[in-house]
Design a protein around this nucleic acid. Sequence first.
DNA 1: AGTATATTTCGGTATATACCGAAATGAAAG
DNA 2: CTTTCATTTCGGTATATACCGAAATATACT
Lengths: 114, 114
Amino acid sequence: MDAITIFKALSDTNRLRIMKMLEQRELCVCEIRSVLELSNSTVSEHLAVLKDAGLILDRKDGKWVNYRLNDRCCVNFIKAVLELLEEHVGDEPALKNDAAKIKKANRYKICCTI
Amino acid sequence: MDAITIFKALSDTNRLRIMKMLEQRELCVCEIRSVLELSNSTVSEHLAVLKDAGLILDRKDGKWVNYRLNDRCCVNFIKAVLELLEEHVGDEPALKNDAAKIKKANRYKICCTI
DNA sequence: AGTATATTTCGGTATATACCGAAATGAAAG
DNA sequence: CTTTCATTTCGGTATATACCGAAATATACT
């Protein structure tokens, strides 16, 4: 059941944080790592789960891989999900902090520091 | 994060099947067990997960406990979820079969046969 | 009170997955 | 061609959870 894959993908705090960050703009693995404070491999694995579920897309750009929300797939559903999260942003400081951090994130400073 | 609880609750095949069945009507544990072919304790645990997430409600009726969808909570979100599932009913024979079985289910015949 | 039935809770097991560091891969630059 | 750096894949571990049967709980009936 495809829906299962989607819900499983969304049923992890770090992956939801990634979805919210990607709402702002396209991001590379390192930028996300710098916010979540997880290892690169773990972030990469989370991104693979979201991608398998069809929730995000990737695009190569030199040595970087940029990830972005997949706006075409299940549009209404994804919107509903993001709205639901929006309702909880107030309750969940992590989501607010992530948004602030990612605004300032500069991949040229962040990367090379694994 | 509350949304996590909701997604976790929905990220299991049997719990999604329960949600679709409850779309038809209120059901007791035994009726659901008869369709899913799991033990009563497992079904009860699944229902507890859905209830904790605020997705369903329960109501005592004599020795039975009737479960139903919680229409009030996160209305748009739940609608989006059920629509998403509806799109997959065609692909997923289990959901069709469940719907047929639950239409015929009679708790007076089903129960007492644990 | 005692029996029957529906449900929940508990203890135990087996599988899934989140995480890490190390190794492998792929692209760009020297 | 070699080095550098971002990312992915792999092996291993620790925690979460889906499942069951048995015991406990709750309600109805005799």
